[in-house]
Design a protein around this nucleic acid. Structure first.
Length: 271
DNA sequence: ACTTCGACCTGTTGGC
DNA sequence: TGCCAACAGGTCGAAG
């Protein structure tokens, strides 16, 4: 489900209730997520205060003095703040209970997400160590894409969705950014000019920034920390619009599969 | 190092 | 209405 804007929306929603707050208990109802939830999380986290709530790519980090909780929402995960005593639903797998009477509740029907307890610096964890730059950082620009893409034969959409290249660009926003930049998703990454990569980098930044401003995209069930949906889906130009008219030229939006993911594009605007 | 593909899960949707 | 295949916002790891 969530791409970078949805994770950032979640982070902003939950941070105020967590900052400086001690954890009193961790309840795990189902530990079989992408990696089994470690008993050390239940044993070590209680009694410690959450000092910072950060995001790296699509990972959320709850940082304490003795270690960090690393959370990923996978395809169907969400984090909600609920009042203590609220009964859990079927897919509410982990509760982080706070001293202030709130619970940070992790829900994930498909269980592709993860909740990890890391005693080392979170950014040094093997899952985070080799991630690419943040797309909204100055480091990520057209020059970077151009340099990294030379000799790459894969489709540009698959290329920009790779987390070791750049983090946070998932299926929705990759499709939208390529439309915005006028680049066909199947074009070989190594055969795109510097000028076009500059346009693409700017488009990625623009679409992610706009989506964060709208609170993310809710296609089916994404909700932020207080249960509210996002509104960016109303601004989607190509994603999920196959068969409909292109907003720019009126041609019929097409869909193809690239890297086993649906890829929507305008055959006339994108070359 | 790059590329492709299967695997991990449950819930929803669309076609017959 | 019912059944079932296909598909869904992600990413890892194996194999070529």
């Amino acid at each position: 489900m969530p791409e970078l804007p949805e994770v950032e929306t979640t982070r902003r929603g939950i941070a105020p209730a967590l900052l400086g707050e001690p954890v009193t208990e961790v309840v795990v109802r189902n530990r079989s997520l992408r990696y089994p939830v470690s008993p050390a999380l239940m044993r070590d986290l209680p009694g410690n205060k959450i000092e910072r709530v950060e995001r790296r790519g699509k990972y959320l980090l709850l940082i304490t003095a003795i270690g960090s909780v690393i959370i990923h929402l996978g395809m169907s995960g969400s984090l909600r703040l609920v009042v203590a005593g609220t009964s859990p639903n079927k897919h509410d797998h982990v509760d982080i209970v706070l001293k202030n009477g709130l619970i940070l509740r992790f829900r994930d029907p498909r269980r592709f997400g993860l909740v990890i307890w890391s005693r080392e610096e979170a950014l040094d964890h093997s899952l985070l160590r080799s991630l690419g730059p943040e797309p909204l950082s100055a480091e990520f620009d057209g020059d970077y894409l151009y340099q990294r893409s030379r000799s790459r034969r894969s489709a540009v959409k698959v290329f920009i969705m790779g987390s070791h290249l750049v983090v946070g660009v998932g299926n929705i926003y990759a499709s939208e950014a390529l439309f915005m930049a006028g680049i066909h998703p199947q074009r070989a990454a190594g055969r795109i000019s510097l000028a076009r990569y500059q346009t693409l980098a700017a488009a990625i930044k623009a679409v992610l920034t706009a989506a964060i401003a709208e609170g993310g995209t809710t296609l089916r069930d994404f909700v932020d920390g207080s249960g509210q949906p996002g509104y960016f889906q109303q601004k989607l130009q190509v994603y999920g619009r196959q068969g409909e008219a292109c907003v720019e030229c009126g041609a019929k939006i097409k869909s193809m599969r690239l890297g086993q993911r649906a890829s929507c594009y305008c055959p006339r605007c994108q070359r």
